[in-house]
Design a protein around this nucleic acid. Structure first.
Lengths: 238, 238
DNA sequence: CGAGCTATTGAGTAGTCTCAACAATTGTGG
DNA sequence: CCACAATTGTTGAGACTACTCAATAGCTCG
């Protein structure tokens, strides 16, 4: 196990405050109430999400650390499918279904709530339903991004995109710690580990990133990185 | 215009009867009520979905025909992104957002409902919320399938997969009419139109399908087609 | 320090794309 | 209904990207 006792909480100390999460827009009183009802789990690196009551949690919020979701392939193997960083939410739809499996990356704290409890809560705090839709909206948006990446992008663009996304989702720190090996990055982006490695080197040679260590990435030229990702079009294109 | 007296059951009888849709499990009385409240639109080929009240519809049900969703690419172009066949539902999350655009393929009838109305309806028929989750669940499952296709599959597997899906979603007719050109199939599957064409020919030469006309596909060997798609064979267990 | 990973690098290849010509199908006006 | 134009689909040759296989280098941790 690549324990990596690195503190993810620190890396993501500034979770996307702007991202609509489950508690968005609720009065302080309601939030306090919810925090009392939701269950808090603490997981160490690699721990699977406990499925206490025979079911995956209906919704969840990652407070610290990160979760990874591995899905089963038709061939019987398993592959890394998605990540949930601190400050992001688990929707009832994305994870676990289809034989997916959630586990912690680094020390992780999360709040969960099962379906029955959620329904009770939501009946007294209707806004919860709206926020739940927002959470799922985010998931679909993500899925769309990955579809674009996988369907239309070159290797360079894929790697640049992943770096950009991770960087942004961890709060654009000066130095980014990759939570994944080259092989895992490849699994997510539909590339081989060798190709991922080569692309990292190319970005390094081009002066876009520095790689003090294989998993430490310093983004030197955000502008160019985004440009290489093929995503953010400068308005005067076309 | 209200959705009066056409036979809802008929429209969805053929295609995926098992697929959980918005009205699943509701008493006849409630369904009749809903059909009165939902708006019915009739579109001709190519018509965009009217966005009456400045907003895309919150939920929709395709009764006849099909809808296509085109999204804007970062480069400013647009590309075919998803299809919704008769009997399937539009969730509030998938379509339209991100500058997507919905339009009809062939003569199409659909029922729509905006957010405010849906909330009112759902407060008197709580099961609607549950069904809505089911609809979104389907969308996420679809997104996952496409991610697998785009990320890990060869050209042959991609084309075989699309054929299998379309075939199943149209009720496994003896002869399937493709709603898309080779170029559009390529847009969805991340291939060029030439490669799509070549794969069709290969499947034909292998005796898996017949192509009486470019867009008419007779599936001769479902078994092999599914095998070539690289997906696990359908479980007839249940 | 060395074992066991993980990552890098290289050489050769397979599969898909690009570009280009051609064929088939569909649509249109006489 | 035919002739023709426009669109869509097919086929081929060559180029190029990313893959495979294989060897080497660099971390991490006992």
């Amino acid at each position: 196990m690549n324990a990596m006792n690195h503190n993810w909480a620190e890396a993501s100390a500034r979770p996307n405050a702007a991202r609509p999460t489950l508690f968005r827009g609720l009065p302080r009183k309601d939030i306090r109430h919810l925090l009392n009802i939701f269950e808090e789990d603490r997981l160490a690196d690699g721990d699977p999400l406990p499925r206490g009551r025979a079911e995956p949690p209906f919704v969840g919020l990652v407070l610290d650390g990160a979760l990874r979701e591995d899905v089963r392939t038709p061939q019987g193997g398993t592959r890394l499918f998605a990540l949930t960083f601190a400050g992001e939410a688990l929707s009832p739809l994305g994870p676990c279904h289809k034989g997916g499996r959630l586990s912690a990356m680094g020390d992780t704290r999360l709040l969960t709530c099962d379906r029955a409890v959620f329904d009770v809560l939501a009946s007294s705090i209707p806004r919860l339903y709206m926020n739940l839709l927002g959470v799922m909206q985010d998931q679909i948006t993500d899925a769309y991004r990955w579809q674009t990446l996988l369907g239309r992008k070159t290797a360079t663009e894929r790697v640049a995109s992943m770096l950009t996304w991770f960087h942004a989702r961890q709060g654009t720190p000066a130095e980014l710690t990759l939570p994944l090996s080259r092989a895992e990055l490849g699994e997510m982006s539909g590339l081989t580990l060798e190709t991922v490695s080569r692309q990292f080197r190319n970005l390094q040679k081009a002066g876009v990133i520095a790689l003090p260590r294989p998993r430490q990435v310093r983004v030197l030229d955000t502008e160019t990185l985004i440009h290489l990702s093929g995503d953010a079009p400068l308005e005067h294109a076309a």
